[in-house]
Write a protein that binds this DNA or RNA. Structure first.
Lengths: 329, 329
DNA sequence: TTGTAGGCGTTATCAT
DNA sequence: ATGATAACGCCTACAA
């Protein structure tokens, strides 16, 4: 490995001169030229560790994601990536694989790597999180869930649920089947559902059956296969697009004609909902925008600017072919 | 920031003792206990940079991916992630966004970060790559494309193309429409196509129309919309599953009944092909396995063990409902 | 403009 | 078992 000393020796100058040449750059044009050459020849690059050791600064942002193979996660990531690059930060992306222990471990690792801030795509914030975050004393931003006294950004999931409910009611539907996920997931499992339920509050003669299934298409498909035949619903609300796609597959399998037999809608706005038959009505989520704003917010925190603890991003109803007006009986 | 010196001072020992305690651990149980306490109290963690500066070793592997939002990429990544963790490596994942300049920049960044090896998911290896790789003098592994004189792993794309061709011929098909992508992409654009074409070599009275479209579903869909009506093909070969899904959508739009009007097949083995109607026949690719083996290979290189320059991973034909025997005319 | 010297936090060597 | 000391590669007063 070639070091600043080697360069200095070869150039016949002091290493501090080389350092100056490397940084502020106030050196005579003669030395500059000489150093230019030698650096090029030797292929010298400064040792990041020695630098960071001095600077106690790395220009790196740490990102923790729950899983690698999720469409929404990766949209968020690409937003983060784009903006981070614009703002001059490098990214370290780590994967917690939906494992809480690994998530906590990743936070520690990132802190040890001396990232300047951390963006965490989380489903749940525990006491252990808070402790780690507090001790680290660097800007921390939680994405996808609200979190007490921690900077967070989330989607307006409650409102999204409410919107879907109002939309369905306006189409004349009163009998619902709701495929949700565990309430452990606040945003997806709880808020979307509660928003939907609350939208039905002042509507008479409604009937809602709630089924808890999984984020996994395969499992949701199985669950749909067993529960659809028992249902009388004219509208099936699915808490994610993946569940909606799985339910649609099950419906086709059962030889139900959709949306005539019942309407289906999802949440997410995945491109995939455009490539099934029928295309699926969904609440679109500003995933990429979330990533972009996350870095903007983190940058502000890094600069000491204050931002509100909570940022909410709105969603949009995208009506497609899987939902129709309830037929008069 | 609390350092080893602080600990030493508080414990009333030399910092070298603390260092020993931190590493090999041969200290008296009395000092050990005392240090245990102080470390816990202060929340001290060793500074990674100082460590790496000494060790000239980081235990990190760099990964460069072409884009964040690709299903196959992320499967590979999750394999890499899993195995890297098993082998005790940390990962730095960077995104080149399909931009050659950024890709080269990322290589440099990773080298500066002193990663011990680099895994590059690439579409093309240029002279600039080779130069960088040579200068860096660390193990380098290219995934997804063969590369002269560089360690690489690739899928058996030519054979996959050949397999699809043989399969279609055995079903009695002779008239083909092939949706491919630019030959710039060696594996997808060139090898899959050539394998397919060569499989037809000794078959009489074949007819093949080749159309170059894009990896993007949206564009492929548009292209299919205009070219399907002009085609007489009884079998449509698509170079990727995404293209196949787009073509299927176009076919449905055009009110062709699939697979009666024509068969469709893809490449990739995406889960998504199970959730459209009909499910799509495809060549499945061992994405995750690729990631796992990549880290295994890189680990060997890191340990100085030799591996073959080229590793090929086989694919498997998965027959589903989008392909049927050609009807007698 | 340039060189000298000291320090960033850690580990390793060598005495004690 | 413990401590003093040098070294890793770089940066930055300060002095020349």
């Amino acid at each position: 490995m070639v070091t600043i000393n080697d360069i200095a020796r070869q150039a016949g100058v002091a290493k501090s001169t080389v350092s100056r040449y490397l940084n502020n750059g106030s050196v005579s044009s003669a030395t500059r030229k000489k150093l230019d050459e030698i650096v090029k020849e030797t292929g010298y690059t400064p040792n990041t560790f020695a630098r960071s050791l001095k600077a106690a600064k790395t220009n790196m942002i740490g990102v923790i994601i729950p899983r690698l193979n999720s469409a929404s996660t990766n949209e968020v990531l690409s937003g983060i990536d784009q903006k981070a690059r614009e703002n001059g930060y490098d990214l370290i992306i780590t994967n917690s694989n939906q494992n809480m222990q690994r998530e906590l471990g990743n936070i520690q690792t990132l802190i040890k790597q001396k990232v300047e801030g951390i963006i965490l795509l989380a489903r749940e914030i525990t006491e252990s999180h808070r402790k780690l975050i507090n001790d680290a004393n660097i800007p921390f931003l939680v994405l996808g869930q609200k979190a007490e006294a921690i900077h967070s950004m989330a989607y307006a999931d409650y409102e999204a649920g409410y919107t879907i409910g109002r939309y369905a009611v306006e189409l004349g539907h009163r009998d619902f089947l709701f495929f949700g996920v565990s309430e452990q997931d606040k945003a997806v499992g709880s808020e979307r559902k509660n928003g939907f339920l609350d939208s039905l509050e002042n509507v008479t003669e409604t009937n809602v059956t709630i089924i808890e299934t999984s984020f996994s298409k395969r499992i949701a498909y199985q669950d749909a296969l067993t529960s659809l035949p028992k249902s009388t619903a004219s509208y099936v609300v699915c808490a994610t697009d993946n569940i909606a796609i799985a339910v649609l597959k099950a419906a086709v399998e059962l030889e139900y004609s959709i949306p005539e037999k019942f309407s289906i809608s999802g949440f997410g706005g995945y491109e995939e909902t455009d490539y099934v038959q029928p295309t699926i009505t969904t609440m679109s989520y500003p995933y990429k925008e979330m990533g972009i704003q996350a870095v903007e917010n983190l940058t502000k925190l890094l600069e000491g600017t204050d931002i509100p603890y909570e940022t909410l991003l709105p969603n949009e109803l995208i009506v497609k072919n899987s939902t129709i007006r309830k037929k008069k009986v």
